[in-house]
Structures are given as C-alpha cells and as structure tokens.
Design a protein around this nucleic acid. Structure first.
Length: 118
DNA sequence: AAGAAGGCACCAT
DNA sequence: CATGGTGCCTTCT
C-alpha cells in the first residue's frame, strides 16, 4: 500500500520537487479567497492541468499536515466534500470551512454562493 | 439519482 | 523503457 512517502515540509511549505506545474498548482490553491471554495477540476484548469482533476486531488493529498495552504477550500464539482466524513482530514476540512463562514448543509456547499472563481 | 465512460499523471511491476 | 491499475474527479447517459 502506498501513502507512505510524505513531504519533508521543511522550510516553506510543501513541494518535494521544484516542478513548475506543481508550483502553479500550489499558487492557484493559495489564491482561493478566504470563505470561498473551488472544485478540483476548476483548480486543475487554473493551474494549467487541463482535465487533471483527479491529479489535483492526488496532489492535495500529498500536502503536509501543517500546511498553510487552503487545501480545505477544494471540494468536488457538485459542491460536496470529497473526503471521508470520518477521516481526520475530512473533519478538519469541515471545521475550517465552517470557521470561514462557509455554510455546509448535509456535507454540501452552495457553489452559486461560495464557488470561486464566480 | 445512479452508473458508465473519459481523462491524465502517478506508482509499482 | 513499456504497461497496467489507481485516485480527495467530471461529465455525459
């Protein structure tokens, strides 16, 4: 089973390698405004990944725990939280979004209202 | 609402 | 280096 190699999370934040595409991805992620959410697909597109929605999810999963990047502002295209509700990360995501003022009803978010970019 | 198919880099063989 | 299975997805039946 994979899922072993986590990032050093040394100085800045994440990034195991200096991949330009990933850099763009992290930048796009960081640009999501407080209190707003973005879908994996949209984020991927913004970062120049084209249809790399799944890849976006994979990469988010590689972020170190203490990351300051707003990984929690990424949900699926239907505005639903894609992380398992019972997982630590899932709970964390819910908590952070709620704290930011994002209304989550039954694990769903109104993208018309909180979706970004508009 | 639920299932199938598309799409793309990752990772283990 | 080639190959096949996989995922924090999307979009189209």
């Amino acid at each position: 089973m994979p899922e072993s190699r986590l990032l050093p999370a040394s100085q800045s934040d994440c990034r195991t390698v200096s991949d330009p595409v990933k850099e763009a991805f992290w930048a796009a992620l960081a640009s999501i405004p407080h209190g707003r959410v973005c879908s994996y697909g949209t984020l991927a597109r913004l970062a120049g990944l084209g249809r790399g929605a799944r890849l976006a999810g994979r990469w988010l999963g590689q972020l170190p725990e203490g990351s300051s990047l707003p990984w929690h502002r990424v949900v699926n295209s239907q505005g639903r939280l894609s992380l398992p509700a019972d997982s630590p990360a899932g709970q964390e995501q819910f908590a952070r979004l709620t704290e930011e003022g994002v209304s989550i009803r039954n694990r769903r978010i109104d993208m018309k209202r909180y979706g970004w970019p508009d």
